[in-house]
Write a protein that binds this DNA or RNA. Structure first.
Length: 285
DNA sequence: CGTTCAACCTGGGCGC
DNA sequence: TGCGCCCAGGTTGAAC
């Protein structure tokens, strides 16, 4: 679920909590295996209680809550990675059973912040500045998708033999693109997802970079994509609306809105790729 | 260097 | 109704 637009919407939906003090922390649900936290929940609870939210940031597909200065460096960054089904919520969760962490806040209007995760693949980590730099710095995350340039994309991927669709999911090349937006970006750029990166020319990279910025920005403006029933929700429990703009993702067999040809689904890197054979082209050699 | 596979989890949808 | 499969927005590490 959460790719850059959804995580950015989460960030915006909880940014107003800056300035509030964390009064208590609970980890209510333990199923077969609890989600990954670092450090362990009991220790995390001690280190978070009493601290104040300074600001809320986003690094790629991660939400990073900056805390006030730690008394004895307890780590100043609470980094949450929603993975497939994680949500940051100030509203009631879709189901109480999958609340993984609840921060109780010193505010009557905003009494809590919840991390909810049905599948439980998400992670919660409290990091110091050095660990944050290692986890979210340029070695791990490339330029943000909202601002990536053709030079950056082509420079990083231009000599790769990988298919462009697979390469766009590489977070070191560009941060924030996931399976939905990779498909939508390549449709907007009119590039065949199977095209090897090394075959792409400058004009292709320019269209891909421009489509990356514009598709992600449009999706942020519509608060992300909500597909199916129990799926992505904003922090105050509303649906995103960008799914109404999808041109290829999830539309296998349906007619392309541009040319009428059927959208096809293939598998690349063990994940579904959707594209239109009529509108998306391999570069000519 | 690149690809493939399994693993981590829960739940919806489908065919039989 | 139930069972067994396939599918799902992500990431990581091992094996080849």
């Amino acid at each position: 679920m959460p790719e850059l637009p959804e995580v950015e919407t989460m960030r915006r939906g909880i940014a107003h909590l800056a300035g509030l003090r964390i009064e208590g922390v609970s980890f209510p649900r333990h199923t077969a295996r609890p989600i990954v936290t670092q450090p362990a929940p009991a220790c995390l609870r001690r280190r978070l209680a009493g601290r104040t939210i300074a600001a809320v940031h986003r690094f790629g597909k991660r939400v990073a809550i900056e805390l006030d200065v730690a008394p004895r460096d307890a780590g100043g960054w609470l980094v949450i990675e929603p993975r497939m089904t994680g949500l940051m919520l100030v509203a009631d969760p879709p189901s109480p059973a999958h609340v993984r962490m609840e921060l109780r806040l010193a505010s009557r209007r905003h009494p809590r912040l919840i991390f909810w995760d049905r599948r439980g693949l998400g992670t919660i980590r409290l990091l110091d500045a050095a660990s944050l730099a290692a986890a979210c710095g340029p070695a791990r995350l490339g330029p943000d998708g909202l601002a990536v340039t053709a030079d950056q994309l082509g420079g990083h991927l231009g000599r790769s033999r990988r298919a462009i669709k697979v390469a766009l999911l590489d977070q070191r090349a560009v941060a924030g693109i996931g399976n939905i937006y990779a498909a939508e970006i390549l449709f907007a750029a009119a590039v065949d997802p199977r095209a090897p990166c090394r075959r792409l020319r400058l004009g292709d990279w320019e269209r891909i970079a421009a489509a990356t910025r514009s598709i992600l920005a449009a999706a942020v403006a519509l608060e992300g994509s909500s597909i199916g029933d129990e799926t992505y929700r904003t922090a105050d429990n509303r649906s995103g609306r960008f799914q109404l703009q999808h041109r290829v993702y999830g539309r296998a067999g349906a007619a392309c809105r541009e040319c009428g040809a059927p959208i096809v689904r293939i598998v690349q890197g063990q994940r579904s790729t959707f594209f239109c054979r009529g509108c998306q082209w391999q570069p000519r050699r």
